[in-house]
Amino acid sequence: MDTATLDHISELSKLNFTPDEKNVMLAQMTDIIELMDTIKEYDITYDDTKDHNEVRYDDLRKDIPAPSFPTEKLQQNTSPRDNCYVVPKMME
């Protein structure tokens, strides 16, 4: 893996690394991708007609409105103000 690729997937992952962290991560990800690359040796093609059998689409519950969790219980994990989630002001 090269630095540009690591930068690209870090961007996709919303992760930042310091230069030192990036060097370590680059070495480790290169080793990991080397291991993953061996999968290319195996000559096989995915047959998407065989898949998607784990989810039941024929027995979905009816879409009936029902009471949800109390607001104060959902907001116990954040610092709400006036029943709203507070985030930084976005001025770009």
């Binding site: 893996m1 690729t5 690591l6 997937i9 870090s10 996709l12 992952s13 992760l15 991560m25 480790q28 990800m29 990991i32 991708i33 993953m36």
Partner: peptide, 11 residues
């Protein structure tokens, strides 16, 4: 966790 996220997004 960061390594797994990077690998997943790479793949």
């Amino acid at each position: 966790v960061k390594r797994r996220i990077l690998l997943g997004n790479y793949a």
